[in-house]
Every structure is written in C-alpha cells, then in structure tokens.
C-alpha cells in the first residue's frame, strides 16, 4: 500500500445536447460509443485515463462519471434537450474538476492537468455570462487544477468563440464550411480517441505532454478568425 498508484489524466468530454443537435443524436451516441470502446480496447491507455462524459444544455448532466473504461459495464447516452448554456458548463467544471482531482488523489493517484474536450454546435445562449466562470476555471492561480480545454465547433458555432473557449489557440477547431455535421461529430470523437491514446502514451513517457489531434474536416479555428 506504500506505493502511489501512478499518474492519471482526467479527461472530460462536454457534449452539446441542445435542441439543435437533435438530428445528430445518433452521431453523438455513436461517437461516444466509439470513444469508450476505443479506450476500453487499449487497456494500457485506459489504465492511465479517467473519462467523464457530461451532456450540457440548460444545465450539465453526467453521462459517465470519471471512469476507468476497463471497469465500465455500460455506455453513456446523450439526451437532447434545451438551450446552449455555456455558463452552466464552466460553473459546473469549476467545482467538479477540483473535486474529482481531490478524490483521485485521495485514492492514492497523482493527477495530470485535466483536459476538457468541448463540442458545441451553436453560439452560447447565455450571452457573455459564461466568460466569468470560464476565466475562473482556467486561471491556474485561482484553480490549481485548471484544465486544458480543447474546443471544437460545428454547425452554428463560431471560430472566434471556440478560440475563446480553448485554453490555447491551437486547441480550437471549427468544422470546415459545408461539412456534414454528423460526419464532423464522428471525426471529433475519432480525433478525441486518438488524442487521448497519444496523450496517454506521451504523458507516461519521459517527456510528458498533451497531444491534441486536429479532427478531420476541421480547421484550426484561429486560422478562420485570422488573428
């Protein structure tokens, strides 16, 4: 019992469950399934990850609580409902992430900086209210366990918003104009799985780093914004 149990990467997938996603509910569900199965079939990676899936709309609902995919016996399911409230997301994460990290540490693990994969198909319906909790969440002075946020926009989501949500410009992606949204959702999860697998390997190595793969059919949002 004396040894620490290793270092984990907590990963949060924030899936947009707002009404406008309704035609793509299947794609979302399939994407989540392929993510979960992809990790479950990589036990050396899964052992180093804790995956949470959160559906957001008017509020945030837990679809999969910080899980070792090797131990899960069921798959997360989304539920399409309501608006696109970004404020609810960052409020929720501001308490959730520090709590989860504390809990994991209590279990004897060390914890890498958490990573959030944020997928939205629309502009926030709460105006700019989300910026305050977002700032709080990502300020490493205020939130020592502040996560890296990777933001992917599809549908009506705007590149500039994704750049604002992401914690680094190169972590913001936007689906190329005209891309089928269902396909973009699938690509998002595909890249997410690959990023987690690659990060799982890299974080474990001598030169730990987060690896973020650009999803196919997405471009770097910063290029669209033309900063």
């Amino acid at each position: 019992m004396a040894e620490t149990k290793g270092v984990l990467l907590p990963a949060y997938v924030l899936a947009d469950e707002s009404g406008s996603m309704s035609p793509y509910e299947q794609d979302l569900t399939h994407g989540l399934v392929s993510l979960c199965e992809g990790l479950r079939a990589e036990p050396m990676i899964a052992a180093k990850l804790r995956l949470a899936v959160l559906g957001f709309s008017d509020d945030v609902q837990v679809r999969l609580a910080v899980a070792d995919m090797r131990r899960e016996t069921s798959l997360p399911k989304v539920e399409i409902r309501g608006l696109t409230n970004y404020e609810a997301v960052f409020d929720d994460l501001s308490t959730r992430i520090p709590n989860d990290v504390r809990w994991l540490r209590g279990e004897g693990y060390k914890v890498h900086r958490p990573v959030v994969f944020f997928l939205s198909d629309g502009q926030p319906t709460d105006g700019g209210a989300w910026r305050r909790p977002h700032r709080e969440l990502t300020d490493r002075a205020r939130t020592p366990t502040a996560p890296n946020i990777v933001a992917c926009g599809i549908g009506n989501a705007e590149a500039s918003t994704m750049v604002e949500v992401a914690t680094q410009p190169e972590f913001a992606f936007i689906a190329k104009p005209g891309t089928d949204i269902g396909r973009a959702v699938a690509e998002f999860f595909h890249a997410l799985t690959a990023s987690l697998v690659a990060s799982g390997q890299a974080l474990n190595s001598g030169a730990p780093q987060l690896v973020v793969n650009r999803p196919d059919q997405f471009s770097m949002a910063i290029d669209e914004v033309g900063q």
């Binding site: 004396a2 620490t4 504390r102 540490r105 209590g106 004897g108």
Partner: peptide, 15 residues
Amino acid sequence: NSGSGSDATFTNTGS
C-alpha cells in the same frame, strides 16, 4: 482524513 463528523473518511495515500 477528509470530511468531518459522521462523514469523515480515512484514506491510505501511501505517503
């Protein structure tokens, strides 16, 4: 030790 009163739990962190 985390929590307090009847909710207190004790975890072996190994260090």
